[in-house]
């Protein structure tokens, strides 16, 4: 378990991270979200022991990162922002160094390096110098470095930054595959990513935690959540709108588009848990409307994100 206790960091007189506390259990993928300069990287740097906190601490698998740093660091795999790597080394030599420093030697070391190269799809560039690799490969080399010792705790700062959609997908699959026996914290500002991989999301803004929920619960905060979007064929917009407006439990109706008798409307409910779609469809059927499609909105994360961080 990673236990973050009241972490605070000042740069000069500026409070960059303000009293952040949370825990991450094994089996969890914790998404760390926030606008740029919200304090994501600073928090991760404190958890991994790169910079000491002004106050508070992080306990990693029972070891305090400030007082028992070495033992805590042994348990962590860390992918820093921008995926730094030694540009004048070959991929193989670099991973060999990482394995050595993690305490492996001999055949076990060679085995670890080979396994990691396979897992991160690096076999094509094993003996290439890291400086000559593309951004996507560099990112994967740095990712490989973080998992080579099969750590219990993984801290990934923007692991898919700068990757193309295919590579993003691959990295996300890798992260998901590993999540069962590890606690993973990953920071991102890509909201799709939270949906795709995270089991829990923490949103921070201005150095403070402003939300700590599952992505589904977060989405419920969206104004869109529970609204029904309908598309149907009719010429008479006004009649339709008043008809929908009279359905019980409807708060408001929004006309989205009206093209050649093809109308798209969104109906917002009074109470998000009511079965609005059912009531709407019954009413529309009674009035002989032809419904082309109807779906219930789940809400959008970026709306919620903007709502609570702006």
């Amino acid at each position: 378990m990673i236990e973050v206790r009241e972490l605070t960091k000042y740069y000069g007189f500026k409070k960059v991270v303000d009293n952040i506390s949370f825990t991450a259990e094994k089996g969890e993928i914790l998404g760390f979200l926030g606008p740029n300069a919200a304090g994501k990287s600073t928090t991760m740097r404190m958890i991994t022991g790169f910079i000491p906190p002004s106050s508070g601490t992080a306990v990693i698998g029972g070891f305090d990162i400030t007082s028992n740093s070495l033992s805590a660091r042994e348990k962590i795999g860390y992918l820093p922002e921008n995926a730094p790597a030694y540009i004048d080394m070959s991929v193989y030599h670099y991973l060999e160094f990482c394995a050595e420093i993690r305490g492996f030697s001999g055949t076990q070391k060679a085995q670890k390096v080979r396994d990691t190269i396979d897992r991160c799809f690096l076999s094509g560039v094993t003996h290439q110098t890291i400086g000559t690799l593309s951004k996507g490969y560099k990112q994967r080399v740095c990712f490989a470095q973080s998992i080579i010792h099969d750590p219990e705790y993984l801290i990934l700062d923007e692991p898919t930054d700068g990757l193309d959609p295919n590579q993003k997908h691959e990295v996300r699959l890798m992260i998901k595959d590993m999540s069962e026996e590890k606690a993973i914290i990953l920071s991102t500002h890509i909201l799709d990513e939270v949906d795709a991989v995270c089991s829990r999301a923490i949103i921070i803004a201005g150095g403070r935690i402003v939300a700590d929920e599952t992505p589904a619960d977060l989405r419920k905060k969206s104004a869109m959540h529970g609204a029904v979007t309908l598309s149907l064929k009719t010429g008479d917009t006004q009649t339709l709108l008043s008809c929908l407006g009279n359905v019980p439990d409807v708060k408001s109706v929004e006309l989205l588009s009206n093209e050649e008798n093809n109308i798209k409307v969104r109906v917002f409910p009074e109470d998000k848990n009511s079965l609005l779609a059912d009531k709407l469809l019954v009413t529309l059927m009674e009035n002989k409307y032809q419904v082309q499609s109807a779906w219930v909105e789940q809400g959008r994360l970026d709306d919620v994100f903007r709502m609570i961080t702006a």
């Binding site: 991994t48 790169f50 790597a85 030694y86 420093i101 470095q145």
Partner: peptide, 14 residues
């Protein structure tokens, strides 16, 4: 310059 100092100093070495 490369940012590798962040990697190096978060490894379990003094």
């Amino acid at each position: 310059r490369l940012g590798t100092i962040e990697l190096l100093l978060t490894l379990p070495v003094t």
